[in-house]
């Protein structure tokens, strides 16, 4: 399986390139951001947050944080991390070198895309991990919050996180293509920002089901019945995956035949 070998070595190299970069730190900071705010919130305002007898405090605690990340944090993180990771290559004038190596061009493109996905998954895992740490920490500080009397409801929060992650893929495909194509990192960033804001404005309309920048909201704040039954793969997830495959393939075909100057 020579193709697999190319793919693995390319992905491995992309991981080495992440060392000591801002992209690496951004992944950690993004995972930590909301739990940190909730740490302050719960440790300062705990009196108003004491749950009613018999209610699991984790449910509200976890779902609220996951939902808080949806409108801005997650999409901005996607746009930023994608640009940053590809920028490592542009900054070092690397693409001309990589495309003159005896390796297939697809292994370069998809190796890098894989690492973008890995950083996003890492950010999600860290997010969940920090939520738990913060929950137990505030629980330790204020026993009456009951965090130690109940166990976190993992199945629901993991399902929400999973839906949120899948919903981001449509943007990843497009942003990655744009970032790879343009040496100037401001352009994909600007386009991304504008489309995210557009997504926020229109996500309540029916048509937003076709606009990937609103998918993260749609995946967590469903607007139609089909989505309310918390499936693993609601319609928006399927569309997101379709966009992702479409943009990734188109992006690769475009980059492959592009003149590298």
């Amino acid at each position: 399986m020579i193709a697999l070998k190319y793919y693995i070595s390319s992905t491995k190299n992309e991981l080495i390139k992440l060392k000591r970069t801002f992209a690496f730190w951004l992944t950690i900071i993004s995972g930590l951001f909301i739990p940190l705010i909730y740490f302050l919130y719960y440790s300062l305002k705990y009196k108003s947050l004491i749950p009613v007898e018999g209610v699991n405090p984790w449910d509200k605690f976890m779902v609220e944080q996951i939902r808080a990340a949806a409108p801005l944090l997650v999409p901005f993180f996607i746009v930023l991390i994608t640009s940053l990771i590809v920028q490592i290559e542009h900054k070092s004038l690397g693409i001309k070198h990589l495309f003159a190596l005896p390796v297939p061009k697809w292994s370069i493109y998809f190796g890098k895309l894989t690492v973008v996905l890995l950083t996003i998954i890492t950010a999600y895992i860290l997010f969940l991990f920090f939520i738990l740490i913060v929950g137990y920490s505030v629980g330790l500080m204020h026993e009456e919050l009951n965090f130690f009397s109940f166990t976190p409801n993992f199945s629901e929060s993991i399902k929400l996180l999973f839906r949120s992650f899948i919903a981001t893929l449509g943007i990843v495909g497009l942003q990655f293509w744009l970032s790879f194509r343009m040496r100037n990192f401001i352009i994909p960033l600007g386009i991304g920002m504008i489309l995210i804001v557009t997504g926020l404005i229109i996500y309540r309309s029916e048509e937003s089901l076709y606009f990937p920048y609103g998918y993260n909201m749609l995946s967590l704040f469903p607007i139609d019945k089909d989505m309310e039954n918390l499936l693993w793969f609601p319609r928006v997830s399927i569309y997101s995956l379709l966009y992702f495959s479409g943009f990734s393939i188109l992006g690769y075909l475009d980059i492959k035949r592009k003149n590298i100057t």
């Binding site: 970069t21 070092s92 004038l93």
Partner: peptide, 17 residues
Amino acid sequence: LSKVGALIENPSLYGHL
């Protein structure tokens, strides 16, 4: 390409490594 070594204009190097 496996038999070629190329140094094209400014070398492509990762400055942070």
